[in-house]
Amino acid sequence: MINAHSPAQTLQTNINQSLRAKAALLDDAGLMATFAAAATHVIACYRAGGRLYVAGNGGSAADSQHLAAEFVSKLARDRNPLPAEALTTDTSILTAIGNDYGYEHVFSRQLIAKLRPNDVFLGITTSGKSKNVLAALEVCKKAGVKSIVFTGFGGGPAADLADFSLAVPGDRTSTIQELHIMLAHSICESVELALFPMEA
């Protein structure tokens, strides 16, 4: 018998929560359709010569960098690199904008400088309320550039600002973040398969 407060029980509880959330995601036809539309849009952007920008805070910042690395390097197999950038990595830019304009502008100001018509922005915010991600989504709307958001807890304000809102199920931030990285991997894999088809 596993002790109720043992590390093994903690792991078992977390696995069960993850499985329930993934099953709920699989059964959500609307969310699956939105994912397909978002991935298709990223593919179209790359075909048109665009690039992907990604941003989030904390663990979502790490996920942003993780995803950008897989586009530029590779996910599953050798192929040409794809342009992608996490807006979370340049400490000089982040601290300059944060100091001069406020932390809520650290992503939006970068997008104002970088965005081109065929680009796409992916914001990651577990709560859907991160002010700097919301500001970045506003910049996309004004620029006419489509955006994607990975979120949870019903989506929050971010769900209304993004063109493709993926508010995943889950009762805890850690579970939601697990689903976010699965979505990220699946978008990257979809792009690889579309742009670099496997040889027969």
Rank of each mutant, 00 (worst) to 15 (best):
P7G: 10
L11P: 06
E192A: 06
D63P: 00
K131M: 14
K141R: 15
L193H: 14
L94V: 10
L195Y: 02
A37V: 02
E70A: 06
V145Y: 01
M182L: 15
L11K: 02
G102I: 06
F35T: 03
D28W: 08
A162T: 13
L195G: 04
V133K: 02
Q65P: 00
P157N: 01
S73C: 14
A158F: 08
L179H: 14
G58T: 04
P117Q: 07
H41R: 09
D160F: 14
S60H: 09
L87W: 13
A158W: 07
L122S: 04
S60A: 04
Y101H: 13
L26Q: 12
E192M: 08
G128N: 03
V133G: 02
G49E: 12
A62F: 08
I148L: 08
K141A: 10
G144F: 04
L67K: 01
Q17N: 14
G152M: 03
E104W: 05
E189V: 14
A21R: 13
G152A: 03
L122V: 01
S108L: 02
L134H: 02
Y53I: 03
T95I: 00
N80S: 15
K131C: 12
H185P: 10
A8F: 04
A200P: 10
L94M: 13
L161A: 11
I187S: 07
F153C: 05
L193K: 15
F164N: 09
P157L: 04
I124H: 07
I112A: 11
Q17S: 10
P81F: 12
A86C: 05
A143W: 06
G30H: 06
S60G: 05
A55Y: 11
N16H: 13
D63F: 07
G58Y: 02
V42Y: 00
A136E: 07
L115A: 07
G58P: 10
I97L: 13
N14W: 04
R47C: 01
S174M: 14
S60R: 09
F35V: 03
I112M: 08
H105V: 03
Y103S: 06
S174D: 13
A143Q: 15
F35H: 05
D119P: 14
V42K: 02
